[in-house]
Amino acid sequence: ELAEQALPLAGAIATKRNAEVVLTTAVTAGDRWVDDGFVRQWESEEQAAVESYQRSIIERLQQQGVHAKAHSDWGQPQAVIESVADREGAGLIVMTTHGRSGVSRWTLGSIADKVLRTTNTPLILIRPTAEAPVPEAVRQIVVALDGSDLAEAALPAAERFAQAMDASLLLVRAVVPPTMLYGGQFVPGGLPVLDQLEAEAKQYLERTAERIRKSGLKVGVAVAVGAATDVILTASREIGADLIAMTTHGRSGLNRWILGSVADAVVRHGGVPVLVIRSWPRLSDEAPEAIPVVGDVVVRPPVLTETEQATGSPRPRRGDVRPHRPERSPGR
């Protein structure tokens, strides 16, 4: 039932874009260590049940005028989803996600997380709630930007989506006070600085919006001071957004990509579907995460310097010739 809550939006998107919905179901293989015929019979019955279920969904969609077909493969869900998306040349993956363990805390479902960090296809994540039903149409789209190339990677997909759905865009940028970036460190964050940051942020959004308006789309801009998540969610609620579009990026770890904290919070608390585009920062001489950018002003961390030791000779490096010292007897 959870997965089926993605159907109304997927059907509406397909109808607007004159596209086809490809239903995808992953079936987990049985235990092949036991080969007494029971496992093969179970797999055959499971396959038949999946195909029957998919036919019922296809019939329901066709009654609504939506073209649909289905695939069912054996394997892990994220691998099956990615494989089918690649084979079909899918332009969009739509799926629901749900809560996990924890006291009243929702985290991104493991399947959605794995799909997001392995696919290059734009992904719409839906977290259905009783308070916020899944919209069946998209008329207002919030696009979260921060002035970086990474965030702007969401614009092409958002523009295409808005064109297909006859929707308008609201470009949103948060101005994070420098005092929020460095706890315990003095950095300028008074009203003059914030006024400058807000002005620069609005100029950036207006330039971006003007470029997009040339394609015929209706585009607005919004700038606010505060944490990125709060600003995005507030703007979304104020205009009654049907979709939030944003990029997410890599974090620390052994080559493992996880959903960025802002995107995670937006999916968790947004109450509307989130179009997430995976993007990677361009390599540069300076790591972007080491130099936060607020507005168009670079706020550099305090400089840490090392001083040479004042006393003592330098420690010999490997390969240096050490002076000979006579061996000491065990008794000395």
Score class of each variant (00 low, 15 high):
285 D>H: 12
64 Q>T: 10
14 A>F: 06
136 E>Q: 14
128 P>W: 07
326 P>E: 11
298 V>G: 05
130 A>E: 15
202 K>C: 02
6 A>E: 09
332 R>E: 14
20 E>H: 06
184 G>H: 05
36 D>L: 10
46 E>G: 11
79 A>V: 07
187 V>W: 01
248 T>H: 10
17 R>D: 11
329 S>F: 10
209 A>K: 10
65 G>P: 10
305 T>S: 11
141 I>D: 07
122 P>N: 08
162 A>N: 12
98 H>V: 03
277 I>G: 00
174 A>W: 10
139 R>K: 13
20 E>R: 13
46 E>P: 01
17 R>Y: 01
282 R>A: 13
275 L>S: 08
77 P>Q: 06
111 I>Y: 01
253 G>K: 02
261 S>T: 14
3 A>I: 02
305 T>F: 10
53 Y>F: 11
218 K>T: 12
42 W>F: 14
185 Q>W: 06
29 A>W: 02
17 R>H: 07
84 V>L: 06
225 V>C: 05
231 V>Q: 07
266 V>C: 08
63 Q>I: 05
263 A>M: 07
306 E>R: 09
109 G>W: 05
170 L>T: 15
232 I>P: 03
24 T>N: 12
5 Q>M: 14
96 T>K: 06
286 E>A: 10
300 R>V: 10
327 E>R: 14
18 N>L: 03
55 R>W: 06
318 R>N: 09
63 Q>D: 15
105 R>C: 03
60 R>Y: 09
8 P>H: 03
319 G>W: 08
226 G>W: 15
41 Q>H: 13
188 P>G: 11
48 A>T: 14
327 E>S: 14
71 H>P: 00
277 I>T: 05
23 L>K: 04
44 S>K: 13
63 Q>K: 15
322 R>E: 13
177 P>C: 02
